[in-house]
Structure formats: structure tokens, C-alpha cells
């Protein structure tokens, strides 16, 4: 079953098209990655799906219903946003107490464990917390709410590598025990790549790529070798990225069947392209290419 379906969803602010014709389907009980550069529309999409803002056009279904002003859906939805604002006088313990009442599946014992693990000073005013401690509040709520749909929007700004790893471990362990739909938006793509089962990349308010991570592994390769050999291999094909150093060259391209073998036979080295690299190449290509041509590499990948 699909947890989330959007059809031509759009959100315009005055003259800014924050989201423009987004149609995605996110399956239930999976961890989805929502990636994109700053301003790509990730937060807007999550705000729409949680009824924080209203759509300009299009349709959306969360757990089969419209989420707008829908308590039945919204009580099943946790949205942990990087920019969440809290009342000036609040302490973490205040927020957690309200969250405990608002989410039907809340697990207080688990919340207490997380508070201890992330060393969150519960009784200090939130406005006096460090950025990392601030993020920990969201992580505790996002995990302990056990909401059937949980959105994490840059959940760990200010957290160090140890705490981030702890978040991944907790997320995986809890996800295994209590399967639910997780949408994770982050800039730390390399760190989360192995956690994700499905990825949506947004760029300038539109879907640039929508694919399972398994498929993405073969979606692009980087070939390197003598410049003449690389040129001959490409034979006029569009590359996502090309660099040249003297007589040597590398090129990253979206693959078609048999590319890898052909490249090896042409005497080129072939290397896989990580999700992070693919993301950079795709978003760079779309930013630099003219509007019409820019869509090509994306559609190539999206149809693998």
C-alpha cells in the first residue's frame, strides 16, 4: 500500500514556485530519502503533506486521505523539522509531555532512554540549548512517537558524527521492530545512502529523480582512461560530468545496458557512482544545462 501519493502538487509563494507539479508515490513501511539542494522544495513538500501549509494546486493522499485539517491522519504523522519553533519559556520536558499526549503510539520509556542517550538536558530552557541539543529534541519526538509516517527534515543539524551515528542506529533498530514509513531529508547523503530503500531528488521544485536505491547503483558509472579512448567511448553521448588532466580524462554518465562491459573492453577503468556523487552530478547538470536539455540525464535515470 502507498503511504503517500501526490499528483501534480504545487505550492507557490507570491512569485516563487517552491513546488511545481510534483507527483510521487511513497510505499508504506520503507525508509525514503528526500534529497535536494537548499531551496529545492523538500521542506515545502513535507509541510504540505503534514498540513502545515496549503497547496496551490494538485492532490495529495496521506494514508489514503487528505491530510489537511485531518486529525485522524495528522495524529499518525510526525514531522520533525529543522526550523521547528518552540515557545520561549519551554523546556524539552514540556514539549515531550505534549508530544506524549498528541501521538497515540508514544512510548514514554523509549523516550526516556533516548533523552539519556542523547544527553538532552530536559529541564533547561530550549532557547538556551545548543544546536545539537535542539536537534535531539526532534529526534526523541520523531522516534518515540512511533508515528506510522515520520518525516525527518534535516534532523541532526549541530550533532556530531557520534550522535548522528547513534541516530542512524536507533532509527534502524526501531524501524526493524516497529515498521513504519520514514521520510528522511538530509545533506549527509553518503551517511544515509545505505539506510534508504527509495530516493526522491527534488530540484527547483520538481522531481529530478524517483527510484529505488538498488536500481540507482547501476544508474551511472564513471569511466576513466586516455582522453582519446574516453572520447571514443562516449561517441557524442551526453556526460553528466567530464574532467580532463593532460592526456587523461574521466567522464560520468548515466548507463545503458552493456556500457560497463563496453568500457572495460575499450581499456577504460570503470568505477561505481555513489548516491552522493550521482546527486551532485544530477543537480549540477540540471543547474548548468539549458532548461530543455537539463531534463535529459534525469529522465534517463528515472526510467532505469
Amino acid at each position: 500500500m502507498s503511504a503517500i501519493v501526490t499528483t501534480d502538487l504545487a505550492k507557490h509563494y507570491d512569485d516563487v514556485r517552491a513546488l511545481d507539479g510534483v507527483s510521487v508515490t511513497l510505499a508504506e513501511h520503507r525508509i525514503h530519502g528526500l534529497l535536494g539542494r537548499n531551496g529545492a522544495g523538500k521542506t515545502t513538500l513535507m509541510q504540505l503533506l503534514t498540513g502545515q501549509v496549503f497547496a496551490t494546486a494538485g492532490e495529495m493522499r496521506v494514508l489514503g486521505q487528505s491530510p489537511v485539517e485531518n486529525a485522524e491522519v495528522l495524529s499518525q504523522t510526525a514531522f520533525i523539522q529543522e526550523s521547528q519553533r518552540y515557545p520561549d519559556t519551554f523546556r524539552a520536558v514540556d514539549v515531550l509531555r505534549i508530544a506524549a499526549g498528541a501521538y497515540p503510539h508514544w512510548d514514554q520509556a523509549y523516550a526516556d532512554t533516548l533523552v539519556a542517550q542523547f544527553q538532552l538536558p530536559e529541564r533547561r530552557m530550549i532557547k538556551k540549548l545548543s544546536r545539537g541539543q535542539f536537534s535531539a529534541i526532534g529526534i526523541v519526538i520523531g522516534l518515540a512517537s512511533r508515528a506510522p509516517i515520520t518525516f525527518f527534515d534535516e534532523p541532526y543539524l549541530g550533532l556530531d558524527a557520534v550522535a548522528r551515528r547513534m541516530f542512524y542506529d536507533r532509527l534502524l533498530a526501531d524501524f526493524s521492530e516497529h515498521p513504519r514509513t520514514v521520510v528522511l531529508s538530509t545533506h549527509h547523503i553518503d551517511e544515509v545512502a545505505n539506510l534508504l530503500e527509495h530516493v526522491v531528488i527534488l530540484d527547483q521544485g520538481r522531481v529530478l529523480l524517483d527510484a529505488d536505491t538498488d536500481e540507482l547503483h547501476d544508474a551511472a558509472i564513471t569511466v576513466s582512461g586516455r582522453a582519446a579512448d574516453v572520447d571514443a567511448f562516449l561517441a557524442g553521448r551526453e556526460a553528466l560530468d567530464r574532467t580532463r588532466l593532460g592526456g587523461l580524462a574521466t567522464a560520468t554518465l548515466t548507463t545503458r545496458d552493456g556500457d560497463e562491459r563496453a568500457a572495460r573492453e575499450a581499456g577504460l577503468d570503470v568505477a561505481p557512482v555513489s548516491l552522493q556523487e550521482l546527486f551532485v552530478h544530477l543537480t549540477t547538470a540540471s543547474a548548468t544545462a539549458p532548461a530543455t536539455a537539463g531534463a535529459d540525464p534525469a529522465t534517463d535515470v528515472a526510467t532505469v
Binding site: 520503507r30 525508509i31 551515528r165 542512524y168 542506529d169 534502524l172 533498530a173 524501524f175 526493524s176 521492530e177 545505505n194 539506510l195 534508504l196 530503500e197 536505491t213 538498488d214
Partner: peptide, 18 residues
């Protein structure tokens, strides 16, 4: 198990299961 493997390798349980 799938979950043990996922936790140990820090990968999605579905991938481990696959």
C-alpha cells in the same frame, strides 16, 4: 537475522533481507 544484519552493517533491513 535480517534485523541483526541490518543493525550490524547499518543498512536498510529490506536490503539485508534481499
Amino acid at each position: 537475522s535480517t534485523n541483526e544484519l541490518a543493525a550490524f552493517l547499518r543498512i536498510n533491513p529490506a536490503t539485508a533481507g534481499k
